[in-house]
Amino acid sequence: MDLDTVKTRAGPREFSPADDLPQEYREAATRMIEFHANSEIMGAYLERPFIRQAPSIDRKLAFSAKVQDEIGHGQLLYRAAESLGVKTREEMLEDLANGDGKFLNCFHYPLKSWVEIPMISFFVDGAAMRRQATLRRTSWEPYAHAMDKVCFEEGFHVKHGEDILKELMTGSRKEQEMTQEAFEEWWPRIIQFFGPTDDKSTHHDFAASVGLKQQSNDELRDAFLDQYIPKARKHGLEIPDEPRIRERDDGTYAVEEGDLDWDEFFTIAKNDYEPGLGQINGRKQAQDAVQWVRDTIEGDATTAGGHAPQAAD
């Protein structure tokens, strides 16, 4: 299939591993899904210490289940990426470990305290869910199928995240203040989740033209603000003065992008941000430490299947 045909046909769930797709499509789809999968893993890596630090048995259970789900999403997504025949899961995990794999800006920052948990589990997960819901109509069928299951599970994460936020914001004055402080620190990063404005985004045009991406960064960011600014206020959080948020006549919101730190964002995008590097290396160390187990079981034929890219027939 040539690229023009791909662009003409590009509809929801249009292409499957049975289709003979051009390399440009395969590479763009791999890059996008690999980024998504890596983000699941690095998000889980960031949150895992809080399974232990959760302040009750039920919270610990929910948080363990949440981190487990994210690893499950990584599993689904790496498989969806692998089915494009460009890279194996092993290669993608290897790249993530050695600092070549890219992932979401928010997961490069350290997570220090329980009061920061809703920033990830409610706001970032809420943002992710906005995007993921649109990706159920992506043109790569295995990706859309992965999104079906991810969206099915993710509602629990967002609602649990909101429940933690509610508890903190109805808790002691100290808890409320600590949470507001965390919100102020995280808010600009959360808005940057959707990346730079469309005219600065490098990969958007192609991904949109072949149906991989269904909504632009700007549309998604605005849709997020419309939904989550009222939510934040309902819980008593004050929206910081910066970045400036404009309310349009129809009640929707837009952010003044120049107020956001794009230097930091692009440093992060290159995996050059110090705390993020620590997290990448920490995960690498853990991955290397169990290499011996993978070596031991790989002699077993029943675990094969991840060795060679599964190219289309």
């Binding site: 869910m129 906005r130 993921q132 629990f156 609602k159 909101e162 429940d163 509610k166 309902k234």
Partner: peptide, 16 residues
């Protein structure tokens, strides 16, 4: 298992 405050995002409602 969780109660929320105010209107939930449509994709959260769908998931639930």
């Amino acid at each position: 298992a969780y109660n929320t405050t105010g209107e939930d995002a449509v994709e959260v409602v769908e998931s639930e």
